[in-house]
Design a binder for these strands. Sequence first.
DNA 1: GCCAACGTTGGC
DNA 2: GCCAACGTTGGC
Length: 774
Amino acid sequence: MTDELNRASAEPETTKPEETVPAEADVVTVVLDNVGGNSAPGKVTVESPPDWLKPMEEDEDDGGEGVKSSERIARKTMDDVPKVKRRRGRPPIARNVRHGLTRVDFKRGLHADRPKPKTVRSILERTRSSVMPGTATPVPEPTRTPEVLPRTTQSIFRNLTSTSQRPRLIPISSGGGSSLSRTHSNEFHSPPRVTRVSPLSIDTSVTRNFVHSPVVKVGNVSEQAVSATGSGKNGSEPPLRLWLCPSLEPISPTKTQDTFSDQTVSSPNYSETALNGTVTPKESLPLLSECGSCGCPFPAQKIGDTMCYRCRPKPEKKHSPPNIVFRKKQHPKYKKILKEDFVPDGDDDEDDWAAKKRNRRMCRQCVACLREDDCGKCDFCMDKPKFGGSNKKRQKCRLRQCKFQSKLHGQRTNGMRSPSLPRRRRNVKPKLKRRGRPPRKRKFRSNPWEDDDEVSDKDADDDEDDLRHYKMNGRKGGKRKWNYTFKEDEEDMFVEAVIDDDEPSNTEEDPDILGSERSVMVSNEMYSNTSGLSAQGLYYNMSGMPAAPHVLGSVPLCNSNPVPTGELVGSLPMGDDATQNGFLQIEMVRVGSPLSHYTEEPQNTEQHMPEPQQEPTPVITQIFSLAGGENDCDRDQGLMELFTSLGQTVLPAHWVGVMAKGPVLQLLQCSKLSTMADTVVQIEKGFFYQVSVQNQPLLLMHALYSRHPTCLETVGDVVSLLLDLEGLGVCQGYQNFDAGSPWEPRMSVRAALCDLLVPKDEEQCPKCTQPVEG
DNA sequence: GCCAACGTTGGC
DNA sequence: GCCAACGTTGGC
């Protein structure tokens, strides 16, 4: 980079290829040489150079006169130093930068490293000898010296000032025009102004070119400039610069010019600096017209674009949005910011980019990012050679995947979780790796659950978790994403529905978050009952949950019993969503077999997995829709009141009241252990009620009805009915031997008029005891 | 759209 | 040269 920078800086100056080439150190030396020796330059300079040099030369002259190299050097170095900072194009590698800086002895104003100077000198000498040996050009170069320095941005600024000086010089030089090359170089001096940007290099000639160069050049500018400078400093170079500069300037110039009155301000600065920094900016404007070293007064900026170039450059940067170049420069700023997080710096955009790229997947703050060690258990770890893997996946340990930035997380939480566990992909080629547990549960898969792919462990790592979490993700109506998590406790299994607004992974993954989220937990037992429910939504009362006020009445419905068995656990903060609709919508929640399915998941914690009790019957399968509809036209005042009352009452164990569309107040036995597990009491408008068992209506002729009022208008009536039900059981029907093959399971059948419910001590109703065939 | 596989790159 | 792991690609 340093080289590039140097080159870049040099470029503007490049008009004098060789001369410009010299780095600061070179410049210094050159200056000395010039001062001390070449009268020729002096001659030249006298006319053109003087103008040129005035700003710069003044110093130089001083140095020359004083001939105190140290002083000169110091001055130059001063100039140089600033220049050093300028960054253009791509910043040199940090190393280079360092070197550049290290080279400079700020105290003395000298470069520790002389290597370049030597080269520079040689170059300069060459140029002198070959081109205009004595020409003042060498002096201007000192200005160039800044080029060397460009390393730091600050230097850039300084350079700017210096550049301002240069500009003047340039014009003069051009006037001197002993050699075109010089003029260019002089022009380059103007670049000094430009120093920040390449534009400085631009000269009048440049201005001419402006038009075309802009876009293309922009891209090329920095780079080419570098190359150019590096390569040679021949007449060819000037064009490059011009070319380059134009690109930069063109935009600004034209644009800036118009607007520039403002910009002129900036330009003034240059002029000022040029003048020695003494000139006031605005005053400088007029002065600046002189700056036109290009030949035009600085004010000309407005008028004369030529002048403007110099001046323009700065303004352009500001104004010209279009130019990429500007952006580049600015990038550094951004870089800095970014770098804070990432890499120190000293690098170019590219470096930054690389760094960014590299860090794209890490927030560096989350637990995962902070984790240093691989778990050695996840699939990615297993894939690693160090863990005996084949290195096909080549991914970071699951536990180290950033929770926020990682693709894995981002993709789908599912991915995350499952990942750790090999995908259940069915036919996935069994990779050796999978120590994990083979996917079993397929059988269950037959269930609707199957589709829900996403099952995953919450955090595989957490061995702590006693609970196993199985999650499912689902999207509802495109709105919110619900994540269903099955938690298995030693005793209970729960289904947790989490509303995932959009935070894909986060919620899922962070248990904490989950905790905070509004969630509804329901024991699977609860579901067992639901079989009787119609598929439609239900307004479900969960104990502990404040029922949606509007719907339910502001009374928190409780099942009364603080959940004896814990069937329902409503940990529902009724947050936003819930509140909005008044109810949580739980849709398509099916419980039962799923547990088994998910058992797979527990990746690492497998051992923990207590065999999920296989339930003879798929426990759950229901669709609960807490709410949904807000208003419910369906709502019936009386039912609602009853519903509310029920919520405040202690119902027989595990009975829960639910409001469903219809409106229908449903009473469910949530305990699968209850003989009434499959029984549902539905109370409709007018409090007429009906009992259904396993989705079949209890015939009105059933004795149960006779024992209770036709309408269940009060809580007492309801409770009475429920208690009565608790004394009953479901008729087991009779075995149908008709069916054929011996190996087929014998199916129980009910008589057409089966009572469905029979006293607990009886297995069958009379009708099933003596079934009437046909 | 997801995922396995792998080329590639930065860091050491 | 090795390792880690990011980003991309093709298959499904």
